[in-house]
């Protein structure tokens, strides 16, 4: 039931066309993978409840289309989002190069400045890598984003990505508390600054 859910969080997934945004989402919500998923038109929407540090959060996840033409639709989705996952494809440098455009987009449309951003490098199962892990790390560090590399195909790192994002959002009470004041649920705070606890092998950069 919804009663023990601490809060509902709005998460937005953005990034170039074909980087695997929908695949990442489907792996997370349904634990499935389809190599030829039809292109997302406009936006898709999924809900999943996850438990982080004993706190349950309901995630309302908006999966956006990557093609530029649909971008006029997205401003309304940025509004009110607490977390944004920015995805690129480690086997296509162009999707990494365009990250700057997406950050501009973020800055333009996000209504709050404490929103949690996460950079995700997808398709690490593939061999023809074009973007080095350190490049991703560096970019994330420069823009104060969490960072993770994962593969929606092999499942590697997917769960971890969402957990870290949610953990970080929950650690930023200003992001979600005001909307949930009447819930009366006390957050069991853990010591902060213990990034990497759940996700051995990956590191998050603040």
């Amino acid at each position: 039931m919804d009663e023990d859910v601490l809060t509902t969080l709005r998460i937005l997934i953005i990034g170039e066309s074909g980087v695997g945004k929908s695949s990442l989402l489907l792996r997370f919500t349904d634990d499935t993978f389809d190599p030829e998923l039809a292109a997302t038109i406009g936006v898709d929407f999924k809900v999943k409840t996850i438990s982080v540090d004993g706190n349950k959060a309901k995630l309302a996840i908006w999966d956006t289309a990557g093609q530029e033409r649909f971008r006029t639709l997205t401003p309304s989705y940025y509004r009110g989002a607490q977390g944004v996952i920015l995805v690129y494809d480690v086997t296509r440098r162009d999707t990494f190069v365009k990250l700057d455009n997406w950050l501009n987009e973020l800055e333009t449309y996000c209504t709050r400045n404490d929103i949690v951003n996460m950079l995700v490098g997808n398709k690490i199962d593939k061999e023809n890598r074009e973007v080095d892990r350190n490049e991703g790390l560096k970019f994330a560090g420069k823009h104060s984003m969490l960072f993770i590399e994962e593969s929606a195909k092999t499942c590697d790192g997917v769960q971890c990505a969402f957990e870290e994002l949610v953990e970080k959002i929950i650690q930023t009470p200003g992001l979600w508390k005001s909307e949930n004041q009447n819930k009366g649920v006390k957050l069991t705070h853990r010591e902060e600054g213990q990034g990497g606890r759940a996700c051995g092998g990956y590191c998050s950069v603040l």
């Binding site: 066309s17 074909g18 389809d34 030829e36 998923l37 039809a38 292109a39 093609q67």
Partner: peptide, 12 residues
Amino acid sequence: RQIHIDIPRTNP
């Protein structure tokens, strides 16, 4: 490039 990405996932 966009067309090329989309064709394999048309009626997959």
